[in-house]
Design a protein around this nucleic acid. Structure first.
Lengths: 142, 142
DNA sequence: TTATGTGCAAAACATTTGCAGGAGT
DNA sequence: ACTCCTGCAAATGTTTTGCACATAA
């Protein structure tokens, strides 16, 4: 892991971190880019990617390797689980207690040095389940 | 979900499924392509992608949305958990018992209609932990 | 002052898609 | 026959990278 104390606090990095702390929505790199660009219109997408990567390596933020096509980022660094809507791709926190004995369990059953685990629930979020009902109506109408 | 009985059994699909059943390594689409190409040299990568997608929608195979940049595929369709090597990206099965009460737990704590969950352990596989030691030696030598 | 970081653009990857011809049922 | 499927190639979407210039410490 990167040593956070060696990372220069540039305007770009500070802004990315501040914007990420403002939201609970686990934005993608491109969404972070859009948020940050309102304050720093000349920032490059490459800079956003480089910094999200660097900050996640140093433990300042969390990189979520959830399902879907894009990585997502989270300023909440303490371990917690997530739920993803299979319809719209949105990711929310799920605050159930951590299962703390399971890593040892996995270590006993594998040849791996186990470092941790992540649970991803999948489901349908409320807005999507409503628009699904509308879709069904549309089907009936047509 | 697609109805499996309506899917035509083409040579390409049969071969993809057979090759996937031969291995336990959770190959990526490109790895499946390489495996199948030995038997069907003219198959296209697009066909492999289309069929892996179709077969996972119909429940014939499992699409693993694990960490890393690529999706992985598994002919073992019963629910089970996985462990991924953060060094080489390899994915193995972990045969710990399923946690069957946790979905209700998540449903109570969220606005989602919960459909299921997946646990992904992360760790370092045995071959990688050995080559890491070699790397450390190299650092000392240089 | 100097190692690091940035903006920009191009490259690299992973995946999807349009289309004309081919094959399963 | 009549769909559905395939190979091919081009397009799309995401992430990484090379380089000349800028800037935090």
């Amino acid at each position: 892991m990167q040593d956070a104390s060696q990372i220069r606090m540039t305007t770009q990095r500070k802004t990315i971190l501040e914007e990420l702390e403002k939201v609970t929505s686990h934005p993608t790199a491109n969404e972070v880019y859009d948020m940050v660009r309102k304050r720093l219109p000349r920032i490059g997408l490459g800079t956003v990617y480089r910094n999200l990567e660097l900050m996640s390596e140093s433990g300042m933020i969390l990189k979520l390797e959830v399902g879907g096509t894009q990585k997502r980022f989270d300023a909440t660094v303490h371990p917690h689980y997530h739920i993803r809507c299979i319809s719209c791709g949105k990711v929310d926190d799920i605050d159930i207690p951590l299962i703390d004995n399971i890593d040892r369990n996995a270590a006993d059953l594998s040849q791996y040095q186990v470092l941790g685990h992540h649970i991803e629930f999948s489901g349908i979020c409320e807005p999507c389940s409503k628009s699904d009902e509308e879709d069904e109506e549309e089907v009936l109408i047509n």
